[in-house]
Design a protein around this nucleic acid. Sequence first.
RNA 1: CGGGACGUGGCGCAGCCUGGUAGCGCACCUCGUUUGGGACGAGGGGGUCGCCGGUUCAAAUCCGGCCGUCCCGACCA
Length: 566
Amino acid sequence: MTRLTRYLLPTEKEAPADAEATSHKLMVRAGLVRQLGAGMWTWMPAGLRAHRKAERIIREEMDAIGCLEMLMPVIAPAELWQKSGRYGIDELFKLQDRRGAELVLAMTHEEAITFHMARAIRSYRDLPLMAYHIQTKERDEPRPRAGVLRTREFIMKDAYSFDRDQEGLAAAYDLQAGAYDRIFDRAGLEWYRVESDVGAMGGIGAHEYMAPCAAGENDVALSDAGYAANVEIATATPRPVEGLPGPLEEPDRVDTPGAKTVEQVCAALEVPAGALIKALPVLVGDDSEPLLVVVRGDHRLNEIKLANALGRPARPATAEEVGDVFGAPPGFIGPVGAKAPILADEALRGTAGMVCGANEPDAHLRGVEVGRDFDCDFADVRTVEAGDTGPEGSEIRIEPAIEVGNIFKLGTRYSEPLGATYLDEDGKEQLIWMGSYGIGPARIVAAAVEQFADDRGISWPRSLAPFDIHLVTLGKEGEDARRVADEIYEELTREGMDVIYDDRDASPGEKFADAELLGCPLRLTVGRKGLENGEVEAQVRRGQDKRSLPLEGAAQAAVELWRALP
RNA sequence: CGGGACGUGGCGCAGCCUGGUAGCGCACCUCGUUUGGGACGAGGGGGUCGCCGGUUCAAAUCCGGCCGUCCCGACCA
């Protein structure tokens, strides 16, 4: 029974002043969600329906690949997290019980499920195995933002696979990827799968599922040849530099007083930014080994790619450290005669006629040739840019996107510290190979709002809409238009449709505006005008196409129409 | 964590500079008139002005501290 007179759909004409993202504004305005605190959001009845529809799609596809649903608690003993090495994470909520025992609120459930599987799995005969749950996650985010897109508490589907070796993991990974493809297709989203960084979690391979939209927090590098990667790890061929000065026999020192930035040096020497070698002094690892990273002047260093290339994290040296360790003031550091080992970005390989700092104040060198004038290692450590060249000569473009899911080859990252092993055919103890697979249903919902909204409000894909059909009556109690709408409502409900029935005594404009804001795929209007012609009006939300349905069999016709919608 | 902004009925805002009766639009309640694109009239209810302290005869307004929220950046298992 979903009559608007007996329902809670607190719509607003105006969005909260502090809302920025489309989905944030519209989900609040449409009465789907309400804020309780920073990063704390309540799902109102209609919003919860959309969330549940996303969950249901996920559940069906997980079940279909034999992934077993279970449920683990949010609260967990700190000891497990100390064992896995994740207790130190800042985002982890930590607490004590009344006896002072240390507890955590789980941000994912690798520890919990590995704990259980370590006990349940004994033999190779117990493998492979996949399990998932749909459970609340808690993260002390430094900066919650954009409504439900980044919150401190949210519901996540997290699945885990358990296999006897790397090949088994690869098979489970593929199975999950197939299910993920179907999930995001069914959700009606525009999406793509991209290669992603394995991050601090450790692992041996990962992909992210991205839904492109303006509110996205991630930048994705794409090309028409099918290339898709998070810019955190994307790689491409850079654009060549135009107007590069010719090579010189040997480096030539020039005075560049006060020219510390790329722009200032370019202006002083009248060369393009791409003719510069930009030197970035960093300190590597726990023991802060100095390293001079050099990239082309028009490129940016990518710290994630650098960390991956080095196998450990590096941080930029502070201004004092630059002087002390690298022997020249910031802005005038260069690779020629450098006081630290040099790592050059691949884009610099074989370049000549370059300009770099002279390792003394107010001077640069011209005519520098990489390889001739200094020795270095090479690695791809720059951030790709729009206009770079991808596979098959395709042009790279960069788009913002929401991460709606990720799949991750964990390997033995958790089975080792938590002792999850099995006995093989030879009775030998072996580590279990694991994968983890996450999806945020709230992000699916928000991404759908972002991707399909227009100036009137939300336009749900059929599979996520809180209701299938939004039935509006313009008749009051006792009038024909009310009586007919009541009948159509009953019939649609019997047909299995989820119907929201606007039986309020409000003006037509108000009802239509609310219907378009809420964004259900099909609106039916029963009013006196239509009835006089023996008609019920149907309006498809996406595109606002209107058509008339004969009163006789209107409910059936509406169901038919609904089935054909996106 | 760095930078910026904001906090006044449910929502959006004015008032603060220059201290003196808390105000507007929407929403809400009652009655009446309206009824195919956010109606109209009349009447009405609702606010510790984020919190604490200070200055003052008097503080939404001035001063100090704290808290909260948002935006940009960093971070993001």
